[in-house]
Design a protein around this nucleic acid. Structure first.
Length: 279
DNA sequence: CGATTATCCTGCACGC
DNA sequence: TGCGTGCAGGATAATC
């Protein structure tokens, strides 16, 4: 379930080698995962850089005629990118393979693998990721200056009825938070996930804003959370799962007060919290 | 119209 | 051991 820190780590892990590669061939196995321009481009495609927006990985490309293109990936739950020398056969459930050569002329291959087929890949002409309607509708990047305590406070005020967790998961309000980092941020902020937006006070929004930034930066620092499936673009696990406070710790003692952590369904998602530390 | 719920999809843990 | 069941969850469609 790659969220912002995982997608950022994937971006970093792929940047060095893929960031200057030339894609010579695209092989598509399972139809439906990848939607391209129906061949409206000329191979090879030169990679000009890798960016991220929310949970989306953006790969800037330039085709053989000099036309800019953008490849957009969303991993959803179990999507993975794996960059290898291409010696081994692609793993099971590999839906798309990009055959490429790196800066040194060495062959490499980027496999998109997704056992549950929830993830999607799009190829658009141009460089503007906002041609993708969902990306256009995304809220601020939580690690940018656009995301402030006041912008979070305004987001909460726009949604008095839904739970504060639902607001954090709403990509149109804040981009990139998923179930793991929502639970962790709410724990750090000392706020019960089921609290309705209308019950949140401004000082709590200020705390939550700081907690969101802290937990995302911590997640990136640990190179992501390898709780179940996640590995980066070179197949390496992250380590944030070792220091999670609540996610996946139902019934385990709270690291702060020792009370058993509780589980509930909030915003349609399994939600863990400390009944004592979170008010 | 905003909020909530169902749907997609497969591997794995679990109980009997 | 084998089999059935439920669960994981991001975005979107459907429904309330």
């Amino acid at each position: 379930m790659p969220e912002l820190p995982e997608v950022e780590t994937i971006r970093q892990s792929l940047s060095e080698r893929l960031g200057s590669a030339r894609i010579t061939r695209i092989e598509q196995r399972f139809p439906g995962v990848f939607s391209d321009l129906s061949g409206g481009y000329a191979l090879p495609l030169t990679v000009e850089g890798l960016r991220r927006r929310g949970k989306y990985l953006l790969i800037d490309l330039c085709d053989d005629r000099g036309s800019p293109l953008i490849l957009i990936l969303h991993f959803r739950m179990t999507g993975k990118c794996l960059l290898t020398d291409g010696g081994a056969e692609p793993a099971a459930h590999t839906h798309v393979s990009l055959f490429a050569e790196d800066r040194d002329g060495a062959q490499c291959r980027l496999d998109y693998n997704d056992v549950r087929r929830f993830g999607r890949i799009w190829l658009f002409s141009g460089r503007d990721e906002t041609v993708h309607p969902t990306i256009r509708a995304l809220g601020p990047e939580p690690l940018s200056d656009q995301f402030t305590a006041d912008s979070l406070w305004q987001s909460i005020r726009r949604h008095p009825q839904p739970s504060v967790k639902a607001i954090l998961l709403n990509q149109a309000e804040i981009a990139g938070i998923g179930n793991i980092y929502a639970d962790e941020a709410l724990f750090l902020a000392g706020i019960r996930p089921s609290r309705r937006g209308r019950s949140i006070r401004k000082y709590e929004a200020v705390r939550l804003h700081q907690a969101i930034r802290d937990v995302l930066l911590l997640g990136i620092g640990h190179r992501g959370t390898s709780f179940r499936d996640y590995v980066d673009g070179l197949g390496r696990q992250g380590s944030f799962q070792q220091v999670l406070n609540v996610y996946g710790r139902s019934g385990a003692p709270c690291r702060v007060c020792g009370t058993p952590l509780q589980t509930a369904t909030v915003a349609g998602r399994t939600t863990r919290s400390c009944p004592v530390c979170q008010k």
